[in-house]
Amino acid sequence: MQIRVKVNGVDYTHDVEPRLLLVHYLRDVLRLTGTHIGCDTSICGACTVQVDGNATKSCTLFAVQADGCEITTVEGLSTNGELHALQEGFKEMHGLQCGFCTPGILMTMDEYLKINPNPTEEEIRHGLKGHLCRCTGYQNIVKSVQYAANKLKKEEVPV
């Protein structure tokens, strides 16, 4: 089946098998390997991307279901070579160790901070519920998200 998608601002048209998962399309066809696969059951969140702005576990979607959609992966998070506030926050606050779960968490938190720009610790922990991280114990992930929230607030101050 033919699909047309826009991924990180670039238009693509491909013929795909109906059973091809979106995550396999991104990784194998587009070679955007920043999106990872950690489980087969939509539990770990490592494969999270944004589909039309909504954080979505790309292992739960067939590529054909994303036909006509705009998709952002971790590779599309930074602009003009500048790290996104979340990417900077994770580096500054040691929010990652092996880095495997990180891209998915970044994509979820990017959407989350748009919905809730001023989250409490408890709200961030709740927002992270769809993700598993085996390395960090989450503490520094929480701090990284707080860092990003603070930075984004400062950037928004009107001139």
Binding site: L86, E92, H94, G99, P103
Partner: peptide, 21 residues
Amino acid sequence: VKRVEDKRFVTGKGKYTDDII
């Protein structure tokens, strides 16, 4: 010191085995 390896991981440029085709 902030980790030097982080840049590749937060930008999706890490290279794990399954990323290699």
